[in-house]
């Protein structure tokens, strides 16, 4: 086979001056997409392997783990004292230590979520407008007391002792719930979480669809990552928005076609292996001593959290 190259291919390139204005080269949409997609791929990859770790909490029967988790969450919700919540925090911390998950790895997520959902939205409850009580830190002083809609605006608005107690308790409850949820997520692979859902008698077909979707998101993310990397490698300087839209729509169509072909072939592979419309999945039956110990520990811890409130201040 002899190939005759065009002349330009065998000569050195003349110096190319890309057409740019003074602005910095910006293609934030590409970088943002790539970063997000790469993050998704990494998270899914790491999480998919989570179940293979050789630690006690990772090897517990998914059903036992799921049931224990639910029971502890309910216990935390039923506990109405700061002391109970502090006990729950201590127990969860011990679970983290046993699991081998670095608390440092998740503490940022826990704090951010807890501050947003457990502190910021409850902040008004600190004030005597929402929670009447003994003012420990006055903030505003009016000439006289007034009424606005359903609220009575007192002469002095301030942080009350009761409000502080309520907000602390709610913050701890949210913090504990989030810590426990993340503990469950980080100590279970996706497969284990799906199996755990069998507690709620979710049909096998639905569980299979979830598994397929999970894998599909992974493959699709990788495809998008590759497509966008290829795009970035060929774009120089600032590209007009109109051109970008045209390029991206082409890529989106390519990804759509690829995903369609992928799902058609996966469906054929399922048919080939005996799928007839009804899915039979493996039953998880083996209950080991460690699973019973987990359930028992969760029961004892849950009841301890609930009963602890007897020794605390209820409101």
């Amino acid at each position: 086979m002899s190939i005759e190259f065009p002349a330009f291919l065998t000569e050195p390139n003349p110096a190319v001056k890309p057409v740019t204005n003074r602005r910095k080269n910006r293609m934030p949409f590409l970088d943002k997409t790539l970063k997000t997609v790469a993050g998704t791929v990494k998270t899914m990859y790491v999480h998919s392997e989570t179940g293979a770790r050789d630690k006690v909490l990772f090897r517990i029967n998914p059903l036992a783990k799921f049931f224990s988790f639910i029971f502890l969450i309910v216990s935390i919700s039923l506990a109405h004292s700061i002391e109970s919540q502090l006990l729950a925090s201590g127990i969860i911390l011990i679970f983290y230590l046993i699991s081998g998950i670095s608390y440092r790895y998740v503490y940022k997520k826990i704090l951010v979520l807890s501050v947003v959902f457990g502190l910021l939205i409850f902040l008004p409850a600190l004030l005597n407008v929402i929670t009447p009580g003994k003012i420990i830190h006055p903030l505003f002083h009016f000439e006289k007391e007034s009424q606005w809609w359903i609220y009575r605006i007192p002469q002095t608005i301030g942080i009350t002792e009761e409000g502080t107690y309520v907000v602390t308790r709610l913050f701890l409850r949210v913090l504990n719930s989030i810590s426990l949820a993340l503990l469950y997520v980080y100590s279970s692979s996706f497969a284990q979480i799906v199996k755990g859902m069998k507690v709620f008698f979710i049909p096998n077909t639905f569980l299979m669809i979830m598994t397929l979707a999970y894998k599909f998101i992974f493959i699709l993310s990788k495809t998008i990552e590759e497509a966008y990397l290829a795009l970035r490698s060929r774009l120089v300087g600032n590209v007009k928005d109109k051109n970008i839209r045209s390029i991206i729509s082409g890529r989106v169509f390519f990804i759509f076609k690829k995903s369609k072909s992928h799902y058609e072939q996966t469906y054929a592979a399922m048919i080939s292996r005996g799928y007839t419309g009804k899915i039979t999945l493996r039953r998880t039956r083996q209950f080991w001593l460690r699973d019973l110990i987990t359930l028992l520990t969760a029961l004892i811890a849950g009841f301890a959290i609930i009963f602890m409130q007897q020794y605390g201040k209820n409101s």
């Binding site: 996706f190 497969a191 598994t211 999970y214 894998k215 992928h262 996966t266 592979a269």
Partner: peptide, 10 residues
Amino acid sequence: VQLFCSTVFE
């Protein structure tokens, strides 16, 4: 396309 379960054993 052929591997669609969550773990190798499954």
